[in-house]
Design a protein around this nucleic acid. Structure first.
Length: 464
RNA sequence: GGCCUCGUGGCGGAGUGGUUACGCAGCGGACUGCAAAUCCGUGUACUCCGGUUCGAAUCCGGACGAGGCCUCCA
């Protein structure tokens, strides 16, 4: 089956063909661990988890290496550590910030139904590779040391700007970058910078210092995936300068035409039509959302929009998603299917066309309904599991609504029993009165005849 | 100023040079004591102005509008 992916490098949808089908290699920029991950951070996590699953399906589960890094050295981390743990020595404070933030991140993304990447390397464990890379760049004339800094010499790379389509001349004309005395060119960026005694640092040929922002991804992708690999992913905001500079570092260090063959970028996320920002007060962390919504609801909501489109994150959309998943959980029941439907895989294979994929899921559901076909129901169940859904049992899923608002379960059950008794005696006035009373508590009833016994049975759920 | 997206029915959201996307909501019907849930059915669209074409919502040009990046950011 042909897999097509949109490549930012060529701005075209291309047939994907791996360098080595026995080892398909993908790198995705992971979090800088200084604060709770927000819902925007969840987007690439979910998008590339889907791609990971698709690649495993296509090439075999053992034939895909997915690397998502953890950046645990950064000046934002240092600032956070100093602010939050003023009593601790800086290194202890930093460890406190990075370890708790990373643990939180892992818990969050697990709740979103994602598979663990093959490797999750940490920047601080790859300082030696970074130094080696910087030495290669200096040796090949693409970097220079100055006043304890090492800078990448941007003009030494003729096609710098190719990935983000920013000609160098234009950038210099509109540059809003720091003019530092040790820089030769305005666009030159830092590979290594000196650390003061109270800042985290490592010994290097240029003195005690720490890495610049972009070098860690070049070092970690090199270490775990090699000099050239198949797919590099991340958010569109990283395209420039982060990815452009990664490419510059890796290509100039190793002398290849490309760093990764395919570059994929997910679009931005807005919240209720506005940019998400702390100042607007609409900053949503994954953790906060998980308090109100099942992880699968967040996951499905993300899939309703194609990954390259901007997504507007709204409560209305979340509510719709929950309803859709309710129906599928109920409809699928304990159907055992484990294999995804061909149409679902094909939709995904077309540059992760998740809206098309969702339409195919609805089509399976409708087909199963019309023909009573177990084949379609099996395929729906298998597809949903393949996509990272149906982790709950149907009962556990249904119970999530009951626990999302606090109600007195015993009281509700007692009222339902009273109502059933009233109905048995055709006391409709009393029956309706009880139903209204429950509605006042936020409880909605569903009556059904048990097909086996013909007995009336009432189930209930909490309406938000 | 430079670069990049995008403008589709009440809402969300695909796709395509000539044929139903899909979902939610709405509406009609079945079921029900009445509802809810479920089932069956169903209307509404392609920002504007030019051009290419037998034919454009789909291609090209322009206008208007929305958003993003260029500085930490998924």
């Amino acid at each position: 089956m042909a897999l097509k992916l949109y490549n930012t490098l060529t701005r075209e949808k291309e047939d994907f063909s791996p360098i080595d089908p026995k080892n398909v290699r993908m790198y995705v920029c992971g979090p800088t661990v200084y604060d709770f991950a927000h819902i925007g951070n969840a987007r690439p996590v979910i998008v590339f988890d889907l791609l990971f699953r698709l690649l495993r399906h296509t090439y075999g589960a053992q034939a895909v290496t997915y690397v998502r890094n953890v950046t645990d050295v950064d000046d934002k981390i240092n600032a956070r550590a100093a602010r939050d743990f003023p009593g601790l020595a800086l290194n202890d404070a930093i460890r406190e910030v990075t370890s708790t933030t990373e643990a939180q991140f892992q818990a969050d993304v697990t709740a979103l139904g994602t598979l663990a990447p093959t490797v999750q390397p940490r920047a601080t464990e790859h300082i030696a590779e970074m130094i080696a890379l910087i030495e290669k760049l200096i040796a090949s004339g693409h970097a220079y040391a100055a006043e304890g800094h090492v800078l990448f010499d941007v003009p030494s790379m003729p096609d710098y700007g190719r990935l983000s389509k920013r000609p160098l001349d234009d950038m210099i004309a509109g540059a809003r970058v720091d003019v530092a005395p040790y820089k030769r060119g305005e666009m030159d960026f830092v590979l290594w910078k000196p650390s003061a005694d109270d800042e985290p640092g490592w010994q290097s040929p240029w003195g005690r210092g720490r890495p610049g922002w972009h070098i860690e991804c070049s070092a970690m992708s090199w270490k775990h995936l090699g000099e050239v690999f198949d797919i590099h992913g991340g958010g569109i905001d990283l395209l420039f300068p982060h990815h452009e500079n990664e490419v510059a570092q890796s290509r100039c260090a190793f002398g290849h035409d490309v760093m990764a063959n395919v570059w994929m970028h997910n679009g931005f996320l807005q919240v209720e039509g506005e940019k998400m920002s702390k100042s607007l007060g609409n900053f949503l962390t994954i953790n906060q959302l998980l308090a109100d919504w099942p992880g699968e609801v967040l996951r499905f909501t993300m899939m309703k929009t194609h990954y390259r489109q901007p997504i507007d994150w709204t409560v209305k959309s979340l509510e719709e998603s929950w309803k859709t998943l309710d129906d599928w959980y109920w409809f699928v029941g304990d159907t055992p299917g484990t294999k995804p439907a061909k149409a679902v895989v094909e939709a995904l294979a077309d540059d992760l066309a998740t809206p098309k994929m969702i339409a195919e899921l609805h089509a399976l559901r409708n087909a199963a309904q019309r023909n009573g076909g177990e084949g379609a129901r099996d395929a729906l169940a298998g597809s949903l599991r393949f996509l990272g859904f149906l982790a709950d049992t149907p009962d556990a899923w249904a119970a999530r609504r009951k626990t999302s608002v606090s109600v007195d379960v015993e009281q509700v059950e007692a009222l339902i029993a009273a109502r059933l008794s009233a109905r048995k005696h055709k006391n409709w006035a009393e029956s309706d009165r009880i139903r209204d009373e429950l509605a006042g508590l936020g409880v909605v009833l569903k009556d059904a005849k048990d097909p086996a016994s013909g007995e009336m049975k009432t189930t209930w759920e909490v309406k938000r």
